[in-house]
Design a protein around this nucleic acid. Structure first.
Lengths: 228, 228
DNA sequence: TAGATTGTTAATCGATTAACAATC
DNA sequence: TAGATTGTTAATCGATTAACAATC
């Protein structure tokens, strides 16, 4: 396996072509932990140290990180700043994607007021709603427009992400509109599953209710165990 | 393998003792789809029909549902109402768990105003915050108390679930308090990972930021693909 | 150099799919 | 009964862990 020396002597390993979905799903968590370590001014960490911290095996960490190239250094471990930056790049952080929020209800307001987006370099362009009482106002400094203005807005701006927080009944229609307008990504908070195959629009679903049910499952399972 | 006839002739199969985590994680999604079918007044569905709808293999559906007992009937398929009810029971839905929300900010308000809890038979008892401007008021009909009142409240009520929506810095301390007060479940929306091992308190984490990063990853991956 | 720790292969484990006998 | 569809076993596939040679 041939390896190339990078400009500053850092080894640049061959990237595997198809990284497994299981690894991808773990990357945000690595990114979070490395971000925490950075804040604590730690410079380096070994796979075994990180494995204790994260509650996974050191083997898995080395295997995971190796999918994308050689990020570590034998006898030293991993450079936290470098690794954090690289994983961020892999995940598409700080790409200046532009997002609009569809639905200026409680959830839409909560999301746009959080640091969720800016922390990942995603720009919040606007919100859209059908409620005349909120149209024309701003939330966390972001203007709220009428849903009717969505097509024009998308024509005039590069919109990469539509954050779908409308009530359930409206979600399917709004999603369809977004796909037709060529918005490439939908972050879907409605409990509807959207089928937009063939439109070229990617949907990432957030099912908070599923998470609550997994908690009630575990509470019940624990109780059943205790009752035995 | 011995099988027992239930009271109404329904076969009650042997339940497997340890159901795999992979199956558990899929149950809420089955529950959602079956709920939708119920609304459409469908009575029965075969594994192959459901597999088309959900985009998984019929084999997986049969394998999954069989972990818990025999829910189907050869030559007929699955009774939707029965299956929906059974999966709900497995997940601990409608157990009348009591929840309190810690943090009456945007996210706390959004969650308590949603039908998230009542839809799963989880009671919303109260919210807690440190902001004097909101303490004493109500949100969606639920009273907001001072965070200082949390211990007394927990002593006087059976609190099963603490929904953690406080800012990041406060989250660890509040979680610790909840564990000390004997609250068995925490639904954690703070991006901090909580380590409460040994306290007997279960934590279910919701990392919305991770989900957003998986979306930016997929947008980037798709673009890289197109650029090739 | 000696010690530490990665990168990587091989072994294990678990999850998914295919196939078909059982049975409604 | 004949047709349909599950329950269940066996085969495949993928993901995790263990081990150690490579190397900093």
């Amino acid at each position: 396996m041939d390896k190339i020396k990078g400009t500053f002597g850092r080894r640049v390993g061959k990237k595997k072509d198809n990284v497994s979905p299981a690894v991808i799903r773990r990357l945000p968590r690595y990114h979070r932990f490395l971000g925490e370590l950075l804040k604590q001014d730690k410079l380096r960490i070994s796979s075994s140290e990180l494995s204790c911290l994260m509650g996974v095996t050191a083997s898995q960490i080395r295997q995971d990180l190796n999918c994308f190239g050689e990020f570590g250094q034998q006898g030293y471990g991993y450079n936290i700043r470098y690794l954090h930056k690289k994983i961020g790049e892999l995940l598409g952080v700080n790409r200046e994607y532009n997002a609009v929020i569809l639905g200026a209800g409680n959830l839409g307001k909560a999301l746009i007021s959080s640091h969720m987006f800016e922390r990942r370099g995603v720009n919040r362009l606007a919100m859209f709603d059908i409620n005349p009482e909120i149209i024309g106002k701003t939330v966390a400094g972001i203007p709220v427009y009428s849903m009717d203005d969505l097509p024009r807005f998308c024509a005039e701006h590069q919109v990469d992400i539509g954050v779908l927080t409308t009530p359930k009944d409206a979600a399917v229609a709004v999603a369809k509109t977004l796909a037709e307008l060529g918005v490439p990504g939908i972050w879907n908070f409605s409990s509807n599953e959207l089928s937009l195959e063939g439109t070229g629009t990617i949907v990432e679903n957030v099912h908070m209710g599923d998470s609550l049910m997994l908690l009630t499952y575990r509470l019940k399972a624990e109780k059943d165990e205790a009752d035995k």
